[in-house]
Computed example of a mutant assay.
Amino acid sequence: MIDNHKAIKDTYMSRETIENINSQVQMKTVLFSQTPGRYALKAIMSGFLLALVTVFMLAIKAQFEGANEGLVNLVGAIAFSLALVLIVLTHSELLTSNFMYLTVGWYYKVIALNKALAIALVCFFFNIIGGFILFIIMKITPIMTPEMIESLRALVDSKTVHSTWFAILGKAIFCNFFINIGIYISIQFKDGLSKAFFIACGVIVFVFMGYEHVVFNAGLYVGMIFYDFDAVAWLHVLKNIIFAFIGNFIGGGIFVGLLYAYLNGKRDSLQ
């Protein structure tokens, strides 16, 4: 028998990725604490990009109406993956990816729990502001056609009135698991094309399967404020936001962030 000289630390297969995440959490903390205006702008840009590509996806669905539904949904999902690729590669701030980053940072004591929570909530608020800015601009243009508005209305109804809280929770877990597992893998690559590919993979799965992304959903509801406010059941919207938020945290923060933090070192190993 060959002697086994491996130690526990040799099993930390993606330790470099975890160190990269912790470094980014430290930068987020500095940005948030010392230049909050810049942090807000990065969060606004994420919401803006997400809402912008949402409109692109609605246009695809409207213009391909009558074609094979599965194929249209797949094309829309591929198109929407552009949003997260742009957000990640421009280092913008998105709540759902921050669930993973902040959880890893909390596990390694890089950030306190109260600071992590503050960053998450502020990030979410300004993500929504980004959606408002996008739809204010859209409202003064003829871009949103009646067909696109009807597609938006149907999508909102399916996520609110026609969804139970436990269905939303489960779909939200799956959504952010796929998104953050893609981001986690992408961190291991240096070139932009490889990063973009793995980021897009997770997004394509979540969009095609109709999973729940709390920031994407919030952007849809912002759109309805401008195009059909009276058609929205706002209590059901609140139900969706609450359980999508919780589910996204579980999927990205616990199932990816906390899991891989634990698999790649002890909690006090950075001290």
Rank of each mutant, 00 (worst) to 15 (best):
M1R: 11
M1Q: 12
M1N: 13
I2K: 15
N4V: 12
A7S: 15
D10M: 01
T11N: 12
M13R: 13
S14L: 13
R15N: 11
N20K: 13
N20P: 02
Q24G: 12
V25N: 02
T29G: 11
V30D: 15
S33C: 09
Q34S: 14
T35G: 03
T35S: 13
Y39D: 04
L41D: 06
I44M: 12
I44Q: 01
S46E: 03
G47F: 04
F48P: 00
L49H: 01
L50M: 15
A51N: 08
A51Y: 04
T54C: 10
M57Y: 11
K61W: 03
Q63M: 11
F64G: 08
F64H: 09
E69I: 07
G70Q: 08
L71M: 11
L71Y: 09
V72W: 01
N73M: 09
N73A: 11
L74G: 00
G76K: 00
I78Q: 01
A79R: 02
F80G: 01
L89D: 06
T90C: 10
S92F: 08
T96G: 04
T103Y: 10
G105S: 06
G105Y: 00
W106P: 06
K115M: 14
A116H: 00
L117W: 10
L117K: 12
I119N: 00
I119A: 00
A120R: 01
L121V: 14
V122M: 11
V122F: 11
N127Y: 00
I129G: 06
G131D: 02
F132E: 03
F132H: 06
F135R: 03
F135E: 03
F135H: 08
I137R: 09
T141W: 07
P142A: 05
M144N: 00
T145R: 00
T145F: 01
E147V: 06
M148T: 01
S151K: 14
L152H: 01
R153E: 14
R153M: 13
A154I: 15
D157N: 14
K159Y: 08
T160P: 04
H162T: 10
L169S: 03
G170A: 08
K171V: 03
K171L: 10
I173M: 10
F174E: 07
F178D: 00
N180E: 03
I183C: 07
Y184F: 15
Y184C: 00
S186K: 01
I187L: 14
G192D: 15
F198Q: 09
I199Q: 11
C201S: 13
G202K: 02
I204Q: 02
F206S: 02
F206Y: 08
E212A: 08
N217H: 05
N217K: 02
L220C: 10
V222S: 05
G223F: 11
F226K: 07
F226G: 06
F229I: 13
F229A: 15
V232T: 12
A233E: 15
W234K: 08
V237K: 07
K239H: 12
I241D: 08
I241S: 06
F245G: 02
G247H: 03
G247Q: 03
N248M: 02
L259E: 04
A261K: 04
Y262A: 10
L263Y: 09
L263W: 05
L263N: 10
N264T: 07
N264G: 09
K266F: 13
R267N: 12
